[in-house]
Design a protein around this nucleic acid. Structure first.
Ligand SMILES: [Mn+2]
Ligand SMILES: [Mn+2]
Ligand SMILES: [Zn+2]
Ligand SMILES: [Zn+2]
Lengths: 138, 138
DNA sequence: AAACAGATGCAATGGAAGTGCATTATTGGC
DNA sequence: GCCAATAATGCACTTCCATTGCATCTGTTT
């Protein structure tokens, strides 16, 4: 089991206090977060720093971006061995219309989608909306 | 076969020159369009009018909105008998990474998506990205 | 210590969606 | 046809989020 420091170093990311804190924040959250969520959690630091940190994480495949249709970009830590860029690895995302939270359903992979002749599928984005387990009351 | 005028009237939308023009513009396009696309086509009219026209069409189920992940909302005419609000009717959308256009694959319905116990699926958005038939060179 | 690279902070920008209100056009009753 | 009501249009402004330029700070290397 590697430490967060080791993970960052292995991805050629310099270890800073801020980066460790943001990583831990993401790791504790079980849902995808917006930049605003991170801002609220770290009011002392500047928005830009948080933004660039999350972008750095994204470039290095530590987090992946989620477009859940709310118009606000969300982010979540990648699972170990998650190859976000490979189509076959893509899991689906669930957005709760009640609590407004979005979560990764990491072990629900997107099924193979047929496209018409002449079309080449490279990537699929699938967001299911509805009521999450917490809100459905069971 | 009903005229555009008859269609609009049947949906309780007043027939105006602008609305007819925008409807025809959408009908001629085989791809989903952004508000900017409409703006470019009708430089004489104000953006707000175009915006509200498309919103009116959307409310009355004449067009449906498409979130293809580019961050810019796109719109396309509904097919005859397209019930956009019914989950089972939803077709999938294809976004070309080359020409950057998005099209409705109206006869490719979204497959049933399994969600974990406790989750209730109400709606699904599925966008396939890749290379379209025109760009794939066949 | 000096030099350098990268991280952080502040300010500003840009794009797109949305709204308030005045003006103009259309409709329906008379 | 005329008038009042109602809806459509145009203009200005706002809000929200994403993104960037540049100055400053911090940590590392020689
Ligand atoms: Mn995810
Ligand atoms: Mn469509
Ligand atoms: Zn919920
Ligand atoms: Zn194409």
């Amino acid at each position: 089991m590697q430490t967060i420091e080791q993970l960052l170093e292995s991805k050629d990311i310099r270890v800073t206090a801020m980066r460790l804190l943001i990583y831990k924040f993401l790791a504790e959250k079980e849902v995808a977060v917006t930049l605003s969520d991170i801002e609220d959690a770290f009011e002392k630091s500047d928005r830009t720093t948080l933004y660039r940190t999350i972008k750095t994480f994204e470039e290095k495949d530590i987090v992946h971006q989620i477009d859940d249709g709310t118009g606000i970009t969300k982010y979540a830590l990648c699972e170990k061995g998650c190859n976000c860029e490979i189509e076959t690895d893509l899991h689906l995302h669930f957005h709760c219309n009640n609590c407004n939270e979005t979560i990764c359903l990491t072990d629900h992979k997107i099924p193979q989608i047929k496209v018409p002749d002449g079309f080449v599928s490279e990537n699929v984005n699938l967001v299911v909306k509805g009521i999450c387990d917490k809100c459905s009351g069971q």
